[in-house]
């Protein structure tokens, strides 16, 4: 309206600082952790274990599979949903891929297509439960978390599957130029692609709109059910991609692989600044979140902290990130 822009609602300096922290604060956390570990490891162990090329690439490698899944999780959470089934889905897709490679002689590319196909099918199934059966995402994916894990155990007879196509393993694991692990390259491509889709395309805009206000988005004539189906399918596609990387890296498919992957993926996403209430998502934040989780694990290993504490720390980080998000929203929102 004319001349009645109420100044109090425009960003005040405090709000701007809060928004800046919410958006980029996580990057400072990453930097502080790197600096702290660089100083701590030589002084505690007499030698620099942390700040070496080999270890940093290891951190990136350990972040890569989670990052690929978490990019999909970012779309799902931005749309106001959640996917608790990604860990089971990764296990199932891995088993299906290994069986296809070992028993049906699909080539290495065929194996990759089976992995992403299985993941996408699982994602579509989640999407159908949510859009057709009108289940809440939490309940639908809690159920499929059990279903996909059960299928993985049934298909594999509960045993890990070994002895498949060597070329599949060589293509999707190991290192490439500058000793960079291949999963890191894939994770980087997925991150750039995810960022482009979320910020530059209609699909990304509607993902944000649905998470912001589903009813308003529907009233604007947008077929929200079709887009939600697409969002869960994308999550499944990326989880399938991660399953291919995991299967190649381990040279085997374990039906219990991917256990608690949902914890890491949700942690990376909310830590990065994507709001669990929907409508706001950041791929850069998610990637940084995945790196921080990997750093926590790596740092705790180097500092000889018992590995059982890792789950405790990751869980605490989710709770802290959501508390920070809620507090920030209370500060910034005018109402």
């Amino acid at each position: 309206m004319s001349e009645n822009a109420t100044p109090s609602l425009l960003p005040s300096p405090t709000n701007r600082v809060l928004e800046f922290i919410a958006r980029y604060g996580i990057i400072f956390v990453l930097v502080i952790m790197v600096v702290a570990l660089s100083i701590l490891t030589p002084s505690l162990r007499g030698e620099q274990y942390f700040l070496t090329k080999r270890n940093l690439l290891q951190v990136a490698l350990q972040a890569s599979i989670n990052s690929v899944i978490a990019v999909g999780m970012t779309f799902i959470i931005t749309s106001g949903g959640i996917d608790l089934s990604v860990g089971s889905m990764a296990g199932f897709a891995g088993v299906v891929t290994a069986i296809a490679l070992r028993d049906y002689g699909v080539g290495y590319l065929g194996g990759f297509l089976v992995a992403v196909g299985a993941g996408t099918a699982c994602g579509l199934f989640n999407g159908l439960l949510i859009t057709r059966a009108n289940l809440r995402p939490f309940i639908a994916t809690l159920g499929t978390m059990g279903i996909f894990r059960g299928l993985a155990l049934v298909a594999s007879d509960g045993r890990p599957i070994y002895g498949f196509n060597r070329r599949f393993i060589d293509t999707f694991s190991g290192e490439t130029f500058f000793d960079i692990p291949k999963p890191v390259i894939v994770a980087a491509l997925v991150a750039v692609g995810g960022w482009l889709i979320l910020t530059q395309t209609r699909f990304g805009k509607y993902t944000i709109a649905i998470g912001g206000n589903e009813e308003t988005t529907g009233l604007a004539g947008i077929p929200i059910q079709r887009y939600k189906l697409g969002i869960y399918a994308l999550g499944g596609f990326l989880t399938g991609t991660a399953a291919a990387l995991l299967t190649a890296r381990l040279s085997s498919a374990d039906p219990i692989a991917g256990n608690l992957f949902e914890l890491d993926a949700i942690a990376a996403t909310v830590m990065g600044g994507t709001s669990l209430t929907g409508g706001e998502g950041t791929i850069l934040g998610t990637v940084v979140g995945a790196l921080i989780i990997s750093l926590v694990r790596n740092g705790m290993n180097i500092l000889n902290v018992q590995s059982f504490w890792q789950q405790f720390v990751i869980g605490s980080v989710i709770i802290l990130a959501v508390m920070l998000d809620q507090w920030r929203k209370k500060q910034v929102r005018p109402q």
């Binding site: 944000i208 709109a209 998470g211 912001g212 009813e215 308003t216 604007a220 947008i222 409508g279």
Partner: peptide, 18 residues
């Protein structure tokens, strides 16, 4: 239910008509 708070003015005006 008129606008999506998380989008900017132009994204709202063009919502569904990009």
């Amino acid at each position: 239910l008129a606008l999506i708070e998380e989008l900017d003015v132009a994204d709202n005006v063009y919502l569904g008509r990009e």
